[in-house]
Amino acid sequence: MRKFLPISVSFVFGVLMFALWFEDSESRSMLHFTLIDYWQIIFAFGLLVGVVSFISVASRKISRGEEPFYNGVLIFGALLMPTLAMIDGLQPNSYFQWMFENVQAPMQSSVFALLAFFVASAAFRGFRARNAQSIILLLVALIVIIGRAPMGEFVWGGFDELIQWIRDFPSTSAKRAVLIGIGLGSVTTSLRVIFGVERTYLGER
């Protein structure tokens, strides 16, 4: 029962979504949108479970005396946004939006900007022109980096066309082959899920 019920549900939902792809009528779109609503609602409840779990883990750490200040900041941040939303709503110029635009968004983009340093230092340490493949990789990366930088057009006027050609032809050819590999993998995994062969999401190994 504990295995059969989830696997049956997965089969029914999977076959239904698959069959709806080929149906082209108003009733199809109604059912299709209802199933998408189901998906999003279940996902939303899953996120709620995740937030409750997140806060309870941080609270447990505080009670055990593990970095109480930093775990307190975690909980404070997680509770602050809902509190502000309850006080002032979500409209533009609300406290919630102010907090997002002036605290969360600048920190988020700073974290992404920080990656520029780490990508550069990792490349410096890891990239060595050992064989033909690594030379090609280095060369193409260098062409794209110099060509995309403002100084690129002063070095050589043809960088834009060259980068565009690399992107549209040799790079795209490999990308398409990789995408087909991903597609075949996704199709296989989807079939395994629908037919109950893949059960790792139920905690099975």
Binding site: L5, S10, F11, I194, L202
Partner: peptide, 13 residues
């Protein structure tokens, strides 16, 4: 596991 299966099954389909 039931809602998870519904979500994953629908996603796979």
């Amino acid at each position: 596991g039931i809602p998870l299966a519904a979500m994953i099954g629908a996603g796979a389909g």
